Simulated scan of single mutants.
Amino acid sequence: MGHFIEEILREAIYNEKKSHDFCHLAATLVTDKRTKEIFSQLADEEFEHARSFFVLYTGSEFASTDLLYKHHRSEDPIFDQLLQAVETDDRERRALEIALSGEKWCIDRYSVLARTVREPKYRAAFIEALDRSRMQYEVIEEEYRRLMGAAGSAWTTA
């Protein structure tokens, strides 16, 4: 495995684990039962995504599974946004908007990697991650629309 593959796998593990931490935290902070269930489900899925990339990674830097179990809350402003949203009446909307933005970023990034990576095993992993991100985006978007009602809101989705 080359340096480029190691770097993008490391990035993917980090991003999926960060998404897990965000969804786990969101599930504990939102009050709507359905939204809470969705964030809990997404947290479980994101952890499995991180683990699937971890299995592919053979770099010595991750000799332990610390990356899978370390919390990234203090390292990323996205968690500050979520914690600020908790203090508002629209915490579900704001948490879902943050989640949509994160999934959109993953879709964009995994699209590039699915086109760029040539090694079949790693390319297949990024294609699968892209498909999973698109499905998760749809789940989050559907929940967002449910909460916002039939009229929708100012949020536009990709």
Rank of each mutant, 00 (worst) to 15 (best):
R93W: 02
A99S: 14
Y69V: 11
F79T: 01
K70S: 09
R115S: 14
F79A: 02
E103V: 01
K70I: 10
I78Q: 05
R94K: 15
Q81S: 08
P77M: 04
L82G: 02
A95C: 05
R73M: 10
L68C: 09
S74F: 06
D66G: 06
R73N: 05
W105A: 11
L96F: 02
R109T: 13
L82V: 01
A85R: 00
A95F: 07
D108Y: 04
R109E: 10
E87W: 04
R109M: 12
Q84N: 13
D90P: 00
E75L: 08
E87I: 03
Y69Q: 04
V86H: 09
Y110F: 15
Q81H: 11
L113R: 06
V86Y: 11
L68R: 05
P77E: 12
K104V: 02
D66A: 11
I107Y: 07
A95Q: 06
L113Y: 15
E97Q: 15
V112H: 07
H71P: 00
W105N: 11
S74E: 15
L83H: 03
R91K: 13
R93A: 10
Y110M: 06
D80E: 12
R91V: 15
S101A: 12
A99M: 11
A95W: 04
S111K: 09
H71V: 07
R115Y: 09
D80W: 02
T88W: 01
D108E: 15
R73C: 03
F79G: 01
G102N: 15
L83Q: 11
D66T: 09
E92M: 04
L83E: 15
R115A: 13
L96A: 02
T88L: 10
L100I: 12
V112L: 13
L96D: 01
D89S: 11
D80V: 07
W105L: 09
F79L: 05
V86W: 09
E97S: 10
L82S: 00
D76K: 03
D76I: 00
E75G: 01
E103F: 12
D108G: 08
A85N: 00
L100C: 09
I98Y: 05
H71I: 05
L82H: 01
Q84G: 02
I98H: 05
C106D: 13
K70N: 06
E87Q: 15
L67F: 06
D90Y: 02
R91S: 10
D108A: 13
E103M: 09
L100V: 06
R73E: 15
R115M: 11
L100D: 03
V112W: 08
